[in-house]
Design a protein around this nucleic acid. Structure first.
Lengths: 162, 162
DNA sequence: GGAGTGATACTCGGATATCTGGTGTCCGAGTTTTCGCGG
DNA sequence: CCGCGAAAACTCGGACACCAGATATCCGAGTATCACTCC
């Protein structure tokens, strides 16, 4: 079990887009440059976020991506599900119904206990991830980062948007 | 992100081994037959559980696997980590340190906010999974299953152990 | 009848192929900008 | 100077290779059982 690396890229990209001045956008190439990742592959994940309604894309010169709604209304879970899919990690294949002790289907009204626990664990995971928004990340990162780093980032943004 | 199918097999196998009479064991072939899964592949996961100290193996005729400790002391998380590994699903690649805004390493004393959230979510997931033991599963399944199904299973066990 | 012994059959364990999904890349469709031209 | 229009450059979006890990399998090492023999 491993989470796609694209999830990390998508989250960081969303945080960067959250601090963009109103009315501006960042194209894939700039987002990739800022994070030091391959642009062509990052594009794939940004498209997924766009399809999921998290990002909005605009074409042509000065175009690019921007958040489709306020950063406070985008949870980390939203981004993860957009990129990694919404299916739970555990899929019950109902092996209890197979083999020599199999019974008619109507005997299996209640969900498998193992499946139920997996669902509870999955719900706990998602609940934790839904408790933090992109806006929260922005605040935390600006608070924790050194003033120098913040200044460097701000300067980069200014140059790119010029 | 998807959990290996072997995890489901391992958990069900552990539950079956939990209801074995004291002093008996079940070989891979019987466990596979009971669950209707390929024996050769199930063997791989049983070996992993054996390495992790969850199962004990005995060789020769009448040999096979049995639980290495009481079912009440084996959590679902133990089985999952034995088969799927203990590494967290999310691996932070520290992309904040890459790109044009990178700073000297000493500027990054605090963990990345995104990484921290992922760790909390992972901990919540694991905590939920550690709250249920194989013994709990046995009780729940015996309670929820129809008497007919339980009888069928008991009869199968008796024939196999004979 | 009982103990010893050898063969036997059964078990696990790790090393070996195959295949799906994540990783990485590319080019075409569409739109906005912008520059030039005419009024 | 202002409006219009066409070309150009930049953007996203989906379609196409590549690779690691999960899936699936096999055969060899080791051992408890069991039958047979001998005492």
């Amino acid at each position: 079990m491993k989470i796609s690396e694209g999830v990390e890229w998508g989250l960081h990209s969303a945080v960067l887009l959250a601090v963009l001045p109103r009315g501006t956008a960042l194209p894939t190439a700039r987002l990739a440059e800022y994070h030091g990742v391959p642009a062509a592959y990052l594009a794939k994940h940004l498209q997924a976020m766009s399809r999921a309604g998290i990002l909005e894309a605009s074409q042509g010169p000065k175009g690019g991506y921007r958040l489709a709604r306020p950063a406070g209304e985008i949870t980390a879970l939203d981004v993860i599900e957009a990129i990694d899919g919404t299916e739970p990690a555990f899929v019950c294949t109902e092996i209890r119904r197979r083999g020599p002790t199999a019974m008619p289907a109507r005997e299996y009204r209640l969900p498998c206990s193992i499946h139920a626990l997996m669902n509870r664990a999955d719900a706990a995971w998602r609940a934790e991830l839904a408790s933090t928004t992109i806006a929260d990340f922005s605040v935390q990162m600006l608070e924790h980062a050194s003033p120098k780093a913040v200044a460097k980032g701000a300067q980069w943004l200014q140059e790119v948007l010029a």
